[in-house]
Computed example of a mutant assay.
Amino acid sequence: MLYEDQVREEVSLWAKKLFKQPGMLEQASKKLGMKVNSLIPQKAHDAITAAVRTIVKTTLFGAEYTPKRKVTFTTLEEADRQAKDAISLYRKIAAAEGAGTGAGGILMNVVDFPALIAIKMKFLFELSHIYGYSTTPFSERIFILSVFQLAYSGPTERQRMFQRIRNWETEKQQWSSDVNYHKNMDWETFQKEYRDAIDFRKMLQMIPGIGAVAGAWANYNILEELGETAMNSYRLRRLAEATQRRPVE
């Protein structure tokens, strides 16, 4: 079997898992997270929204996350190998950050929220270069943001992001500039869906005595989920491009 055929099967299985109905544990943790969120003062929610907005704007318009790694277009098999190495590295970085903030109590956990997003964005920029895409064009940064949203959104938004990624060659035409981005971005929904996706694990980080262990575990798993989503998103894109380049028999 050709490597690309094997990858097509793996991506198909991933897509099915992506839209599988949530289990009882996931439903229960979401309800618990919603209950806890209702007890958090609005000022705290506003602060989190502002932090998310700042980091995402840095992602789209700044150079902070641009990796030193040069953009090289290798075979899909080699790109996957490098991607797995990057996932392994960033899981360890995220786990170390979670352990440090988890040991520092609630105030340090507030710091952890934007710090973890920054780690994820750095990882996604790195992965973009691994799969052969420069992060300079605005459209590529929208792709990165779409992968992030795919990993941490509810069913409706997840479906929309998946369709955007699957049809990226067409979708990217509307993202040559930031006009549509400013018009369509809903910051409140963005941060709420992200927070809902990670809440249960991050709440464990705030429990005295187990904060460091829980923080390391939570961040490790959250980054692992992002790694799987990002890797398969880029695989999906590379496979689509290969199909378009294939000569008609």
Rank of each mutant, 00 (worst) to 15 (best):
S233A: 15
L116F: 15
K16R: 14
I144C: 01
I207M: 06
P208V: 05
S233K: 03
A214K: 02
E4L: 10
S176Y: 05
Q174K: 15
Y220F: 15
M185Y: 10
T136N: 09
Q163S: 15
Q191D: 09
A197W: 01
A99R: 03
W217L: 09
K35F: 13
E78L: 10
D46A: 11
A95M: 01
Q205A: 13
M121W: 10
P22G: 05
K31W: 10
S177M: 03
G100D: 07
L226C: 03
D199N: 11
L150R: 06
G215P: 00
E224I: 01
D112F: 04
P41S: 04
I119F: 04
N219G: 05
L236K: 10
V11C: 13
G62I: 02
L145W: 08
M1A: 12
F73N: 10
R91G: 04
R238T: 06
N232F: 13
A197V: 06
A197L: 05
E78R: 14
E241C: 02
Q82M: 11
D46I: 03
F123Q: 02
A240M: 09
R195F: 13
D85P: 00
L226F: 03
S176G: 11
K122C: 08
F162A: 10
Q191H: 11
Y220E: 10
S128T: 06
E78Q: 15
E77G: 03
V179R: 11
V248N: 09
Q42C: 04
L32Y: 12
P208C: 05
I48Q: 09
A83D: 02
T136G: 05
D196A: 12
D186Y: 03
S176D: 09
E78A: 13
P247T: 07
L223F: 02
F61T: 00
K92D: 07
R141F: 00
K120C: 07
M108V: 06
L13I: 08
I106T: 12
M185P: 00
Q244K: 15
S12N: 08
R245W: 04
P114A: 02
R238C: 04
L13H: 11
S128H: 05
G104N: 08
F61R: 06
A47G: 12
R69N: 07
M24D: 12
T58C: 05
V111M: 10
H129A: 00
S29F: 12
H129M: 01
Y65R: 05
R245L: 13
K30A: 09
V52C: 13
Q163L: 14
V36C: 04
W168F: 05
K192N: 06
A44E: 14
A28I: 06
L25E: 07
K35L: 15
Y65T: 01
